[in-house]
Amino acid sequence: MTIRSTHTTASIGLTVVALAFLGIFVALPLVTVFVEALSKGIAPYFSALVDPDAVSAIKLTLTVAAIAVPLNIVFGIAAAWAIAKFDFPGKSILITFIDLPFSVSPVVAGLVYMLLFGMQGWFGPWLREHDFQIIFAVPGIVLATVFVTFPFVARELIPLMQEQGRDDEEAALSLGASGFQTFLRVTLPNIRWGLLYGVLLCNARAMGEFGAVSVVSGHLRGLTNTMPLHVEILYNEYNFVAAFAVASLLALLALVTLVLKSILEWRLGYAHRSAGH
């Protein structure tokens, strides 16, 4: 009996500690975003969102994600396909390399593209001669975003496709399906939920990336400012309501991402969880 009662006291205590920790460190910042955004009322909130600079930042963020995410989908499927369906030496090294962008600081991710394409970079003078700008322009932002979101789709699909093996594909091929038909009719349906899961996380990061993009963007208002960079500029100008208003859009994106993620996790079975990014 005594064991039981200490057990429940301890369980209540631990639950309170865990929820308080989550409340203070995770929930409170989220609530703050919306409270600060609406602190002066509805009108300043919406006027901050329809400001031309804010609108162009929103457009740029959507554009960058619309380029970066499909690129990573194609790569992610190709990488997972190669790793799961074929045998070759150095497989585990390849997986490690794919994960590399997660362990590199986003600032370093931006730096490497400066070293390649910046004015003092390897290709800088050549690009300048041909009047093509990567750094402080949209291509640089896209490159930096592709770098930091590189592993999301691949690392979601690799274990999934490894688990499913290659029996289904071999059966389809032996029955006369072409390689492309096999992919479209057999492989893709098998991985669709995992793929969606990876795309969801990839998209959230692509739209929210700050460090890497900040280094290569040049912060040109209305031109190379993504939403997170616009938040920074507004905040540094002490325009807090506008900063939090734009931030609240990003927070909404995060909330939608979390809801969809929970639904997908339920679809994939509770055991499926992605730790590590």
Partner: peptide
């Protein structure tokens, strides 16, 4: 449980200004 993953989903700049406000 979903909230635990918020730091993965919330853009870092948003977290930064919110924490500073707090």
């Amino acid at each position: 449980d979903a909230l635990i993953d918020l730091p993965f989903a919330l853009p870092t700049a948003v977290a930064g200004i919110a924490l500073t406000a707090i």
